[in-house]
Amino acid sequence: MSGAASLDAILADFAPEQASLLPILHEVQAAFGCVDAAAEAGIARYLNLSRAEVHGVVSFYHDFTPMADPRPCVQLCRAEACQARGVDALVAAAEAAAGSRVRIKTVYCLGLCSAGPAARVGDTLYARLDEAALVDLVNKL
């Protein structure tokens, strides 16, 4: 985390009530790449919750992580519809291309189920991937 000042700047945009917690966590995760212990403590203080309550919420949701991972990330859909279109056969090649440089993260459904295998990098989506296209996508990150 780059400093308490910027956490305070995020918190100032929200009402100090528990219902603000998820929107706050999204902002913190986007700004710092994680929600670490210091951020949890600061959020808890602002919302008048215990740190355990905030940690319970942070650890429940897949989108929030305790440590930042600076690597580029390819979110690869491996749910049923993409499995039916052969995503499992692409994984080995994608992981080989990624090595430790790129993170390949499994997600369940990007809503592109008629045109899988599908992937997401940031807010950019990719569909109809074959092995060459997926490896190319990984290599260009």
């Binding site: 859909c77 749910a79 049923e80 519809a81 993409c82 369940y108 459904c109 809503g111 592109l112 189920c113 008629s114």
Partner: peptide, 8 residues
């Protein structure tokens, strides 16, 4: 929260 695979 349309999480089901196969729905869009």
């Amino acid at each position: 929260d349309e999480g089901d695979s196969g729905t869009f």
